[in-house]
């Protein structure tokens, strides 16, 4: 085990083997509040290699979605302030103009959301919406766009793609709409797909279908994915690495199996232990006391300190993301001393 090495101040790259596709370095986001700036995300550092699927987990209000939106350049220009770097293929997205953003959004970066109904326009057919995306990024004819839209619908497992191409969103079921949204996102073959809770509103059987589709697409085209979810089961099944966020900070990172078996941050451990599958039937479920502080109320100490069973005096200072092993990071200065329970202990 390597000695703890602080990576926040001088952002060392968490992965060293492959040049990352996405390299987020010390990302900070703050919004203009009524009387002061409110920092919602701070010092977020992680990377995604080409073709890799990385899971971003944490409870609501931990900054997962806002991080995803920042990666897509979808946060309001006025009022948002950014720090750090968002490197996609070495190019800092934070320095792009809106016109440059338009070239990349949808083309290099795709995003799918939890609620497909609000992401699809009800007055256009599915095919028209996919075609519009394609014709924005490629100089192709309408006929070609139609063919490629149908191909994309087929790729996501929509039966009768020709007929569905001309269907309106309300004519499709929830699972079909989610597939249609995925088809739109992948039609331009993005290098990175950001999937924000893509199956939360769906039944488990449909969820299994959708995650299979995403897995196949990633395997076939080498598309990388940032999978944002609060569902640890789903993330362990789909992602090779897990990044845990708490109160606007990355608190843990590592290979999925390693994080599940040996979490290195008390928050990740607490999340895993509160899943009902790991407690004897009818037994009392271990939960994490308290709740995630709101942005603006983040303490200057370790942000998890007041909910942590392992809190000591040394926890009353700001914590930095420490390297605690091969590709393993934790924002807890006690992680070397603690033997935190994972899913099997």
């Amino acid at each position: 085990m390597t000695s703890p090495e602080q990576i926040s101040a001088a952002p060392a790259r968490p992965r060293t083997d492959a040049a990352p596709l996405l390299d987020v370095r010390g990302l900070g986001i703050s919004f203009a509040g009524p009387d002061k700036r409110i920092s919602v995300v701070r010092d977020v550092t992680f990377s995604v290699a080409p073709g890799e699927c990385v899971g971003l987990v944490g409870e609501s209000g931990c900054g997962k979605t806002v991080t995803g939106l920042a990666l897509m350049g979808l946060l309001p220009v006025h009022g948002s302030r950014f720090e750090g770097q968002l490197l996609l293929d070495g190019e800092d997205l934070l320095t792009l103009s809106e016109a440059q953003w338009r070239k990349r959004r949808g083309r290099r970066l795709g995003m799918i959301f939890q609620e497909p109904m609000s992401a699809l326009d009800p007055v256009f057919t599915i095919g028209e919406q996919i075609g519009e995306t394609l014709r924005t990024h490629f100089r192709i004819s309408r006929r070609e766009a139609r063919d490629r839209a149908i191909e994309a619908l087929e790729a996501v497992g929509i039966s009768e793609p020709v007929r569905r191409h001309d269907a309106y969103p309300h004519e499709l079921s929830g699972g079909m709409r989610q597939r249609a949204m995925i088809a739109m996102a992948i039609s331009c073959e993005p290098a990175l797909l950001i999937a924000d809770e893509p199956t939360t509103a769906l039944d488990v059987t449909v969820q299994a279908q959708i995650t299979d589709v995403l897995g196949e697409l990633s395997a076939r085209s080498g598309m990388a994915m940032l999978f944002i979810s609060h569902d640890l089961g789903l993330v362990s099944q789909t992602c090779s690495r897990i990044v845990t966020m708490y109160a606007g900070e990355v608190v843990e990172m590592g290979e999925t199996d390693d994080v599940l078996l040996k979490p290195r941050h008390p928050y990740t451990s607490g999340l895993l232990r509160s899943l009902p599958s790991f407690t004897q039937r009818k037994g009392r479920l271990p939960s994490i006391p308290g709740r995630v502080p709101r942005p603006g109320d983040f303490p200057e100490t370790c942000r998890f300190q007041d909910r942590c069973a392992h809190s000591r005096e040394g926890c009353l200072t700001r914590q930095h993301l420490l390297r605690v092993g091969e590709q393993r990071f934790s924002r807890c200065h006690r992680s070397e001393d603690l033997d935190l329970p994972g899913v099997l202990s």
Binding site: G233, V235, D257, L260, S277
Partner: peptide, 26 residues
Amino acid sequence: QALLSAEPVALPSGMRPDHRIVLEGE
């Protein structure tokens, strides 16, 4: 069986049930 196997469990890759039944259609 299909419903149970579709439920994702937070277990390391080696310990997950070896197959998932993905129901076709809706």
